[in-house]
Nucleic acid binder design. Structure first.
Lengths: 123, 123, 123, 123
DNA sequence: GTGGTCTAGACCACC
DNA sequence: GTGGTCTAGACCACG
């Protein structure tokens, strides 16, 4: 369901934010949930090799955004509507692609070179 | 040489690392070349709206990598060798492209969709 | 273990160095011994009325010298060996006494006057 | 008149404060002045191996305290009265001796050991 | 609760 | 003017 290899630290940014992004991407991609159920804090913290508190913080932020719902002693569930999902997906893609395009343009690459690099690194 | 519009904060990561990356990309992209003066700590900090110490931290790391040279009371200069430039360029590109590919794969995109997005956002 | 009244600022020198010296003197004087816990960064900073970071800097230097040991999330402990203690004691005494002798000689005192002053101020 | 060997940096404190103390001690000890004349900023900076600006700062502080008088393009003269001299001498001695006594007591020395050390290091 | 890091502002020494 | 350091406060990750 979740693989550690996918959890690449965007080095520098706080771990709880990396987890936040990771979970969001998993939700959008449909791979992090079994039905509507999120992995438990403890399971995810073990999987990612971080402190449970850190996962807890990410989950709390997700709850603040209204994407999931948590109750003490119970599992966490995804509560977002399809309309929200579209928006979250859009935010994520925009964030990712804009960051890269800006970076590649700064080093002077052309679009063709960028596409070639993308092909080369895709797998 | 440096324009504020180009300095987009990759939200989340430390400011000094953003500055570090920004300067490196400027070097690789040829906007900053060997022997050239860097903007002073104060000048750049004012331009970017951050504390002079934050710029200094980035400059010190650049100096640790041997890319620039700083001395008290004097300006800072770019001092990297051509052999280093290739390596820096490679590091930057790999870092940027790997980050994007990982993120896009996490949300479940195919390579074709990714290329299309890249074309769309390139400008 | 540490009392605020004992912490007299040697005006002029950096606070973190004063703390460094104070802890070293406590170790040499036997008030702080091997295996003992140090006061936490926050506790000592509150006691001395300085910023936690200032205490941390002193602690980090002590760790660099191998006199204490710190780990994130855990307390800091004294870890110096007996062989180190002799050396630290020697450094401290030499530093203190040389500083005084130099200062008194600069103002033109004779050794007899200096001894008399020492007796007078000892309490 | 002045010897570099006497200028021992009380490491850590600002250089201009060390110079300030050094000149005060020289005045009290009667060794720094020729008649009432202070060494020029340039002469003293060369002698001590520091920047003229740093000596300048120390001289300005001495002037602020009313101990010397400076005029552009002219030498600096000592202007303090005998009553002031007594006070300055007292301040200096008290500062020096109190600092040492506190330090030695912290390391657990007895008065007898302190006197012995003083004798041993006097020359 | 612990220690570790990032950002900030003021000061220092030098040119 | 320049770069370097010290103190400060808030935040992070961990136990």
């Amino acid at each position: 369901m979740l693989s550690f290899a996918e959890f690449v630290q965007e080095e520098g940014s706080p771990i709880y934010q990396q987890i936040l992004l990771y979970v969001k991407r998993g939700i959008v991609g449909g791979r992090i949930v079994q039905g509507q159920e999120l992995p438990s804090r403890r399971a995810l913290s073990t999987l990612l090799g971080v402190n449970p508190n850190t996962v807890q913080k990410a989950y709390r932020l997700l709850e603040d955004e209204g994407l999931i719902s948590s109750h003490a002693g119970a599992k966490s569930y995804i509560t977002l509507q399809d309309s929200q999902l579209q928006q979250v997906a859009h935010e994520l893609l925009e964030r990712d692609i804009k960051g890269l395009v800006g970076a590649l343009q700064q080093v002077g690459l052309t679009k063709e070179m960028a596409v070639e690099l993308l092909n080369q690194y895709w797998e």
